[in-house]
């Protein structure tokens, strides 16, 4: 797939993040265009999650900057809440609000922040195939259903980009498919997506670009064919041979 050149929607410039003596991200440069699907792969602890969290201002870089639509993402700015709503975050462990129904989870932010009613939240639950679960509490949903509600919730503020932090890693194998199907639909609709994932099949099929990270650095980046078929770096080869054999 080819994309017309466009200014990046998400841009990371020299982003570094340290936790004590551990460097989680080191001098990361990455640009994601509108409508692009970028999948981050790499071993655990390679910095994928931290990178995503920087885009959503859940982490603050020690150096460098994150730009979203040209605006600097910085937890200290006054309108950070508005900027955060521009990206929808999906977490590995769902982080659904247990005291609210599926509908309540999806409708909370639009209601509080924008004074909107429930109609759109209901439509979003329909979009992820859970219209009949609107009044059910998270405890009563399967892992796959929880993650689909979480995706609907993240879409509720009409974000310009979606961030997925290992969305299927906490799921039983038989539930991975239903979540990936929803994500595939989103990609097809032209949603800009930045996805940290161990699902190589999904990356190969849906990603415009695959980014391999290791030790807080981007080791190599390219189309799925380039990275999966002709990896240039030994570390990429070693990682792929491990995960693709499994």
């Amino acid at each position: 797939m080819t994309l017309p050149p466009a200014p990046p929607l998400i841009a990371l410039r020299g982003v570094t993040r340290r936790f004590g003596t551990v460097t989680a991200l080191e001098e990361i440069d990455l640009a994601v265009s509108k409508g692009e699907v970028v999948v981050l792969i790499g071993p655990s602890g390679s910095g994928k999650s931290t990178l995503l969290r920087c885009v959503n201002a859940l982490e603050r870089p020690d150096a460098g900057e994150v730009l979203l639509g040209g605006e600097r993402v910085d937890a200290a700015r006054k309108d950070i809440d508005r900027l955060r709503a521009e990206t929808g975050m999906v977490f590995q462990h769902f982080n659904l609000f247990p005291h609210l129904t599926a509908l309540g989870n999806v409708a909370l932010a639009p209601r509080l922040v924008r004074g909107q009613g429930d109609a759109k939240a209901r439509a979003l639950l329909g979009r992820v195939g859970l219209a009949d679960k609107a009044d059910v509490y998270p405890d009563m949903l399967s892992g796959g259903q929880k993650q689909r509600v979480a995706i609907a919730r993240a879409l509720a503020m009409e974000p310009v980009a979606m961030l997925f932090d290992e969305p299927t890693s906490a799921l039983d194998p038989e539930m991975v498919g239903e979540v990936l199907a929803v994500m595939r639909d989103l990609a097809r609709d032209g949603m800009t997506m930045l996805v940290a994932s161990h699902e190589m099949g999904f990356a190969r099929e849906v990603a415009h670009r695959v980014v391999f990270m290791d030790g807080g650095r981007i080791v190599e980046t390219g189309t799925p064919v380039e990275v999966f078929e002709r990896p240039r770096h030994d570390r990429t080869k070693a990682f792929l041979s491990k995960v693709l054999r499994a």
């Binding site: 859940l58 932010a109 509080l112 993240a154």
Partner: peptide, 25 residues
Amino acid sequence: RGQVEAARSLGLSRAQSLRHVVFPQ
């Protein structure tokens, strides 16, 4: 912690996150 992170990531303010997500739980 993930509860506050989810709330903030949706654009809720600190006060809204406390009032509507943390306190009820």
